[in-house]
Design a protein around this nucleic acid. Structure first.
Length: 466
RNA sequence: GGUGCCAUCGCCAAGUGGUAAGGCCGCAGCCUGCAAAGCUGCUAUCCCCAGUUCAAAUCUGGGUGGCACCUCCA
């Protein structure tokens, strides 16, 4: 397996520290609002990574945190006159429900900041003891970036002197402009936690380092985790700061491989509330099947920026439909689990830094070839077995085609409509048998008026929602 | 301003030194009572210029255009 490491800026062979076990940590959401397409993209990318690693025979321990301490959460709670807990639980639950509609497998560990305060305070103390952090008169604790000679080695950023001066002047208590808060003193009595440094709240960067050390790191290894992932925007400062903290507080280097997913843009622009073009996942899920969104968001390489458009989303639906039509064609037949050239090729493509485009082209070639051979007369027992097995592999590794094909094509249609459609189709069948094509065409128009397509097959007439 | 990424058919998008995957759309055909679905065939020399090489979309240099990050952010 090959992975592009965003620290070394190169694609390299993935070798976990422990022969068959892989630890993966991904920065999850801050739960103060509904998840947007960007959150979905990130969750999907690392879900795919996890599946591909597992398909390669690795045991993966996958952790994704939930940030439930944050100024934005407090603000939201005040706005809605609710408790912090109500807000964080509501949005964490919504996040998980929506991700599950996208076929995202739950991580093995989902640590929360509120449950990791002890670990964070312990972490701060280690940094203070090692002279990598300092307290200020205000009661804040900052990480001293000048004490870490490897600071900025992850993002390869160059610090500007002018900028440095300016910042220092504006914040007299910070020793260096780049120093970031490990503990923020809060005196307004809003939401605070106790610490040896007084009441306050932990800094955002701290939680990931502390939780990784607590849940995933093993003393015998050099790196705390094999792979650390997150959105491209997190590279700096979030991941840079995490890496610095861990380097200075523990015997570990934070991650052996860093992976960053590209951004979701809308109409070529970054999604943001101020631009008014945020696209919430819950809105997209009202219009489209979760699996279509999964296919769409995964259909371009994870490192590329992704430009959302409904035209392309429709295209993804068509592509996924093809998987389901083949599945429908073979529906009810029992599944085998044999090796095939197709499976090997698919896994190889995905194992090359998740080359999804190549993987999808292999799938589409497999579908065409299977359909072509099934079109020819014959029993095709072996072919059917192999094709079903191939489809099952696609379900496992990519999470495409996991539903019952009939339900997939008919989702969002109520029972009464279904009954009506089946009635019309029966009538049309009778008309067709009697070669009364005027009536059968009229009935077809009535059927199409429900927003569905119909297709006549040797097994009978089926309809699909458009 | 600093740092980095990108530019391949009408659209989406692989390939990164050996002569352009795949999908959508379009056209022609098979199948069909007609459709739909499915299948077959057709459709690009890779932003521009110069260079390296037996060989470049792929490497180097220079343009042009687009994007991202620079301490809120997936």
């Amino acid at each position: 397996m090959k992975i592009y490491d965003s620290q070394q800026k190169t694609k390299r062979e993935f070798i976990p520290q422990e022969k068959n076990n892989v630890t993966l940590y991904v920065c999850g959401p801050t739960v103060y609002d509904d998840a947007h397409l960007g959150h979905a993209k990130s969750a999907l990318v690392f879900d795919l990574l996890c599946r591909v690693l597992r398909a390669n025979g690795y045991e993966v321990t996958y952790a994704r945190n939930i940030t439930d301490i944050d100024d934005k959460i407090i603000k939201k709670a005040q706005q809605e006159n609710k408790s912090i807990k109500e807000i964080t639980e509501f949005y964490a639950d919504a996040y998980n429900k929506e991700m599950s509609k996208l076929g995202v497998i739950r991580p093995d560990i989902e640590p929360k900041a509120t449950e990791s305060l002890d670990a964070m305070i312990e972490f701060i103390q280690k940094l203070i003891d090692a002279n990598h952090a300092y307290k200020t008169e205000d009661g804040d604790v900052y990480f001293d970036t000048s004490s870490d000679n490897e600071y900025l080695s992850l993002s390869k950023r160059v610090q500007e002197e002018d900028d440095k001066k300016q910042r220092v002047e504006s914040s007299l208590q910070k020793r260096n402009s780049a120093d970031f808060a490990l503990w923020k003193s809060v005196k307004d009595g809003s939401v605070t936690f106790d610490s040896p440094y007084g009441k306050g709240r932990p800094g955002w960067h701290l939680e990931c380092s502390a939780m990784i050390e607590k849940h995933l790191a093993k003393p015998e290894f050099k790196f705390s985790v094999d792979i650390h992932g997150g959105g491209a925007d997190l590279l700096f400062p979030h991941h840079e700061n995490e890496a610095a903290q861990t380097r200075c507080a523990t015997d570990h280097t934070l991650a052996a491989y860093w992976m960053h997913n590209g951004f979701v843009n809308i109409d070529g622009e970054k999604m943001s509330k101020s631009l008014g073009n945020s696209f919430f996942l819950k809105d997209a899920l009202r219009e489209y099947d979760g699996e279509v969104l999964r296919f769409y968001l995964l259909s371009t390489h994870y490192r590329s920026n992704f430009n959302f458009s409904t035209v392309d989303l429709e295209l993804s639906k068509k592509r996924l439909d093809k998987v389901y039509r083949l599945k429908k064609r073979l529906f009810g037949l029992s599944e085998a689990n044999d090796a095939s050239e197709f499976k090997d090729a698919l896994l190889e493509a995905l194992s090359d830094d998740m080359n999804i485009s190549l993987a999808l082209s292999l799938i589409e070639e497999m579908i065409s070839s299977a359909n072509e051979r099934l079109d020819c007369a014959g029993k095709h027992k072996e072919l059917k077995k192999e094709t079903i097995s191939n489809l099952a592999f696609i379900e496992d590794v990519l999470g495409f085609g996991v539903k019952n094909p009939y339900e997939y094509f008919q989702s969002g249609v109520d029972a009464a409509t279904k009954e009506k459609l089946s009635e019309l189709i029966s009538k049309r069948d009778v008309a067709k048998k009697e070669k009364d094509f005027a009536t059968s065409d009229k009935l077809r128009d009535e059927i199409l008026a429900f927003g569905v397509n119909i297709m006549d097959t040797p097994q009978g007439t089926f309809w699909e929602k458009i």
